[in-house]
Amino acid sequence: MRDAIELEWAGIPTVALIHKAMSGSANSMKRLSGVPDYPYAVLDYPHVPLAKWDPVEVREIARKLAPQIIERLTKPAGG
């Protein structure tokens, strides 16, 4: 999470990928970093945390995360 915030401060629109199981520490880092409302992309179960996935699951996760990533890296449509 902190890497993403540091990149934002350096001028690069960034999104952090966080598993739902880790959202607590991600939110804590946002609070400590002074950006409590900073959004990130969330991966939920049945995909497990700690990124122990096989190649098929990796592709499935990529498909699921892509819309969230695009939403957080681009201007809102019509906005």
């Binding site: 880790m22 607590g24 520490s25 804590s28 880092m29 400590l32």
Partner: peptide, 10 residues
């Protein structure tokens, strides 16, 4: 150091 269970201590 903020190592509080449920905060940064996970």
């Amino acid at each position: 150091m903020r190592g509080i269970p449920g905060f940064l201590d996970r």
